[in-house]
């Protein structure tokens, strides 16, 4: 069984794209969340091996969600998904325990490499 993944992104499009890429490569997408609050709740419920976390989201953003998830489980493997120009936020995320990051627009190869590396 491939590693289980929770996809967090406020854009349905991004969630679908990631899901297609991951499932094609043997990952098991166990859940999706459209904002940070839902992500934290789903993490608690699903205990996925990996979380892909968008940064810019309404209400609870990705970094806040990352902090909350890490507070619950300090072994949580969270990969940030960000756009160009968000370097400062990624640094903050890395400080807060993010394991790696993906830059939008991403390619399948890069995504898989990043997640396989964890």
């Amino acid at each position: 069984m491939g590693k289980s993944v929770l996809i967090v992104d406020d854009a349905m499009f991004m969630r679908l794209t990631l899901k297609l890429m991951l499932e094609k490569n043997g990952f098991q997408v166990v859940g999706e969340a459209e904002n940070g609050a839902v992500a934290v709740a789903k993490y608690k419920e699903l205990k996925p091996d990996i979380v892909t976390m968008d940064i810019t989201m309404p209400e609870v953003d990705g970094i806040m969600a990352l902090r909350q998830i890490r507070a619950m489980d300090d072994k949580a493997k969270v990969v940030m998904v960000s756009a160009m120009g968000q370097e400062v936020m990624i640094r903050e995320a890395v400080m807060a325990g993010a394991k790696s990051f993906i830059v939008k627009p991403f390619k399948e190869e890069g995504v898989i490499k990043t997640l396989s590396n964890l």
């Binding site: 991004m14 810019t56 989201m57 756009a83 991403f106």
Partner: peptide
């Protein structure tokens, strides 16, 4: 909200 929507459209369109 405007910022976020534009951010999302940008990301999806680039993909």
């Amino acid at each position: 909200e405007i910022f976020r929507i534009m951010h999302t459209i940008k990301g999806s369109s680039a993909m």
